[in-house]
């Protein structure tokens, strides 16, 4: 009844994931660039609401793929974009951003040594930049409610293609994708379960802040967009576990994704097996091109000690979410509670 049509612009073409079957009751939502969902929505809404005028400079703090998505959308609307990033921003990503015309403003390396680390330094620099320009717009992916709201479009796709989704599993960063997707899935299926995937030494679900090997997963500051009451269960996956699963996802399903996708696939594959009656969807946020020299390189993996030992078939169930394990894979039953309620129980 409907005719397939062309996309008006590239960011629209990049926006929605492909839903791919990975098991009898498991589907992957494979994104080219998941952050395109909030980036495109936030910018278009700000433009429509008049928050972005003809001379407005868009400023955001990010050293990840949200910046890339913003840079693409900024091209479509012809606005300047300044991205405040870590000094350690991936070189390939840096080149992609600047080739799109974005200005990448890197905070100094010393900023990593003080409490709050680079994330704090980036927020401070952002405030400085806002003072330097007459008209600025900050998408604020960590606090903007339009971030989770933008994922209604992903939930639309899931319910149209799959019907009743019983469980959604995915990595947690800003909280937008998991809180938003789950919230909108629950508008049709209130009992839909949500399983968040984090990494050890990330503060999101109770661990004290610490050094993390796994890039793209875990946070040092709590994002306002993370609604903890979304989650039924939480998993912490180590870098080694994530990398091995990234390779398994590629080897078994020919899906060439990044390590946050691998971490989520590890949890989802186990979850779908142990809950064969639940239609499960796993969020696979981005592709593997940035990791061809690392995660997709056996020599690098071996040198980092990530190739062996092979990982446990199931997670360790922990009773205290505030004590990080040394690597491996753990899970905790979060029970859709608020963060302080969980932490209060753990700390005597």
């Amino acid at each position: 009844m409907t005719v397939r049509s062309a996309f008006e612009e590239a960011t629209d073409a990049y926006r929605l994931p492909r839903l791919v079957r990975l098991g009898p009751n498991l589907y992957g939502a494979a994104f080219t660039l998941m952050k395109m969902v909030p980036a495109r929505h936030i910018i278009r809404k700000a433009l429509a609401d008049g928050q972005i005028g003809p001379d407005t400079v868009i400023i955001e703090t990010t050293s990840g793929t949200f910046g890339l998505a913003l840079a693409m959308q900024a091209v479509h609307i012809g606005r300047r974009l300044v991205l405040v990033s870590d000094p350690v921003i991936d070189e390939r990503l840096y080149r992609r951003l600047t080739a799109l015309g974005a200005v990448v403003d890197r905070v100094p390396a010393e900023a990593g040594l003080v409490p709050g680390g680079f994330q704090r330094a980036r927020l401070d620099r952002l405030d400085e930049l806002r003072g330097e320009h007459e008209s600025t717009f900050c998408p604020e992916q960590y606090t903007n409610p339009e971030n989770p709201r933008s994922y209604a479009s992903v939930a639309e796709l899931m319910v149209e293609a799959l019907g009743q989704v019983d469980c959604v599993i995915g990595p947690v960063g800003s909280g937008g994708s998991m809180s938003g997707t789950t919230r909108y899935l629950r508008s049709v299926t209130p009992e839909c379960r949500a399983v968040g995937v984090d990494t050890q030494h990330s503060i999101l679900f109770g661990h004290p802040d610490g050094k993390r090997e796994l890039r793209g997963l875990g946070m040092s500051l709590m994002p306002a967009n993370l609604d903890h009451t979304t989650f039924d269960d939480v998993h912490w996956v180590s870098a080694a576990a994530a990398y091995q699963s990234t390779r398994a996802l590629y080897a078994q399903h020919a899906l060439f994704m990044g390590p946050t996708s691998g971490a989520s696939f590890r949890v989802a594959d186990w979850y779908a097996r142990t809950n064969p009656d639940q239609l499960t969807v796993v969020m696979l946020p981005d592709e593997g091109y940035r990791y061809t020299d690392t995660v997709y390189n056996d020599e690098w993996l071996a040198a980092q000690g990530h190739l062996t030992p092979s990982l446990p078939p199931e997670p360790d169930v922990v009773t205290d979410p505030t004590v990080p394990a040394d690597g491996g894979w753990q899970t905790y039953h979060w029970g859709r509670r608020e963060h302080p309620d969980v932490i209060a129980l753990a700390v005597p």
Partner: peptide, 21 residues
């Protein structure tokens, strides 16, 4: 946004005859 999701669900329900949905 919620109505968009409900519309997508109804699209499937009618196309597939899924009364539950």
């Amino acid at each position: 946004a919620v109505f968009g999701v409900l519309r997508a669900a109804l699209r499937r329900a009618i196309a597939l005859g899924d009364v539950g949905l």
